[in-house]
Amino acid sequence: MLSEDLLLFAADASRLMLESGGETYRAEYIAMGIIISQGGTEAECFATSTGLMLSFSGEDGKVRAVVRRIKRHGMNLEKVYRIDNMVRHLLLGDIDIEEAARQLDEVERMRDRPVWIRMIASAFGAGWFSLLFKGKTVDALTAAAMGALLSILIYACQRLKLPGFLSSFTGGAFAALASLGAAYAGLPINTDAVIIGVIMLLVPGVAITNAIRDTIAGDLIAGLARGVDAVITAAAISAGAGGAYALWQLLLSGGQA
């Protein structure tokens, strides 16, 4: 494989790892591992959650570098496993670089779970969380129904390519409005237990924990970037929910007056 192709291949593997929710240090090591396995030297990679830089010196002694910008942020742990496994086999010499490229291509084209599975999973997640946070059965069932609807809403936002802030805002507003509406319609629910169950589908709890994990591991910039992302997401959700509350109260008082 040509040195340029190797560089692009390693950068792509690293980018895919970051896009699938892998840790920053793992993204750096797989890029360096791929290059080392093919005899490159002086490999260095600097990754954050928004982009990565990679450079190495080829067999002809020339230094090559590439920058990749990362725009998508998802969570697909199966992809993390596949890429990690591919690089491990490459380093052990079990597979050659062509096979590795084929496997990476396969991972890149892996589809996310279909919408109906995501819907069912969101319903169960919201329902069980509502029970965990001291909700009753009726709260859990309401939260499950809303969780399913919320997953469709999030999917629609993704299809429309709305920015992350806006889809979190919409999601928060939906969760608050739907549970207030359900309580108004006469369902005997505890709105707090319902909202927290539904909101768990949106909140960046894992993101803030990963931000601190990155920071502890010494990836300070990556940790800061992830932390800011998590804070902004939380702000968007609560702005949506808070706005929906205010609007609801305005509507109710308007009705009475």
């Binding site: 929710g21 892998g22 840790e23 793992r26 969570m75 742990l77 993390v80 496993y81 990690d84 496994n85 969380f129 965990l132 946070f133 927290i196 909101i199 768990m200 909140v203 960046p204 709890g205 894992v206 803030i208 924990t209 990963n210 998590a230 804070v231 939380a234 702000a235 959700i237 609560s238 702005a239 929910a241 808070g242």
Partner: peptide, 28 residues
């Protein structure tokens, strides 16, 4: 398999997602 697969999934109930939401809500 990498441990992070199981780590990220098993800390889901522990992570302070609700805390972040309530923090931002009360500041709003």
């Amino acid at each position: 398999r990498p441990a992070t697969l199981y780590m990220i999934a098993s800390i889901i109930p522990l992570v302070p997602g609700g805390g972040m939401y309530y923090t931002m809500l009360s500041s709003l």
